[in-house]
Design a protein around this nucleic acid. Structure first.
Lengths: 250, 250
DNA sequence: GCTAGATGTTGCCGCTACGTCAACTTCAAG
DNA sequence: CTTGAAGTTGACGTAGCGGCAACATCTAGC
């Protein structure tokens, strides 16, 4: 028995356009194409269509669906599905994080009623270095950092928003007064800097010193932190080094 | 200070192509376009870019991002974000179900080592009516049905795979023998039919009777169940009606 | 002043999985 | 013979850019 395209469409729940598409990409070729161009499907094609729809609904791309059906090797299919499952899990986790972030954003908007939108967004201190951070330290570290943000209290968030700025401004003032980086006033500021940093990750002694050096090495940080005053960035680095050596564990 | 496109790209982590794209769709217009066509960005654009990237990373489409930034109304932004969050949650749940299904499929493949791939897929009894079911009863009902499938034991799954077929075949035999729909043998089969149906949803008395009528009204069901024997489908409906009236609560 | 190399520009095609016309042709029924 | 349903083949549109090609411009070194 030959089924017309509309009959197949109705009984399978897809549109005739979809069937034509599957034909055009070679995923489901009709049993017969009449001289007038009409497509006719047989039982075999219906079965194949069911397989296609099943796999498609599992979220596989049509490409992959085609491969899985072609390689009738069961082990291959399992491999593909297992890989696909991993992908799904990752996606799911990612969405979960997004939900948290959106929630946080909404909270922030609600609470910061008087803040101008700019400030709200500024508040987030979305760092332009994330892409690079992911390259440098890998996705895991960066994700872990975001993970951490979910546990923040409001005070933490406040600290994250304004902490670095307060440190930079304070340091600029102290440096202008000629205060040595070993002085308590400076080290107190660095303590704050360290705490803010710890909101994102917990550096070891060497890592913290490395961070200070990176500020100096990377022109973008130099620009951002010192606003052109390279000496200030070096001052910060030196202060961080002192702090690391006196307060942090190796 | 004016930044070139490459400088902006580097410091924000996007490509210059992306920036050109944002310009072309009017999402981020450079502060200045030199007569030679080169784009230059100022602090203001950098800020806007950060907002864009933040919202984009929350999963919003560029369209929506543009709207949110344009309507600087905070309440609007919250509304959009809340809606978006709902979407995210739904997607996450959907992926979760997909993971379950993929898992089940893998299990099925592993266990059914001797089964031909066709059988495996056949086993799934993917119903072609899902699309229509979603229209008729809404996504929630259908999703709830899938939700239910996650709690299935192997016996349940087996019942779901073969139950209806057994019912239909048994009914055909009994009807051929001229057995009345009120007879115990028929009602026992309907009991099975009811149980299988309950794997997907729990119909009330009226709903179950309605289901029987739908079998008769819908040619696809008629074809599927009776294979052309409309009288058999009516027999099934009558038997279901009797069962509903004698066994089910209103 | 010349040339190479970096950096920029504007198109345009490609990707997924079809939806949605448009413009025709074909088929069955009255 | 007409009409309406069902079929066909293009072709464009979708979101968010990536990746060409072909060309223009800028900068540095000789």
């Amino acid at each position: 028995m030959a089924w017309s395209i509309a009959q197949v469409a109705r009984s399978s729940g897809v549109t005739s356009r979809t069937l034509r598409h599957y034909h055009s990409i070679g995923l489901l070729v009709p049993a017969r194409v009449a001289p007038n161009g009409r497509r006719y499907y047989e039982q075999e094609q219906l079965l194949r269509l069911q397989q296609i729809l099943l796999l498609r609904d599992l979220g596989l791309s049509l490409d992959v669906v085609g491969e899985v059906i072609a390689h009738r090797d069961e082990q291959d299919a399992i491999k593909v599905l297992a890989k696909h499952k991993e992908w799904l899990v990752k996606e799911q986790l990612r969405l979960g994080r997004l939900v948290q972030t959106v929630d946080a954003t909404i909270d922030n908007l609600k609470r910061g009623g008087e803040m101008s939108p700019e400030k709200v967004f500024e508040g987030f201190e979305r760092n332009p270095y994330e892409a690079e951070a992911r390259e440098r330290w890998g996705d895991e570290a960066v994700d872990a950092s975001y993970q951490r943000m979910r546990g923040w209290t409001e005070a933490d968030a406040e600290k994250a928003r304004t902490g670095y700025v307060r440190v930079h401004e304070g340091l600029a003032a102290l440096k202008a007064e000629g205060v040595a980086v070993t002085e308590l006033s400076v080290q107190e500021l660095i303590q704050l800097h360290y705490e803010v940093t710890c909101l994102f990750w917990t550096p070891t002694r060497e890592a913290y010193k490395g961070l200070g050096q990176m500020y100096v090495d990377d022109e973008r940080f130099r620009q951002n932190i010192g606003s052109g005053d390279d000496a200030l960035v070096e001052y910060l680095r030196d202060a961080m080094t002192v702090y690391a050596d006196t307060k942090l564990d190796g």
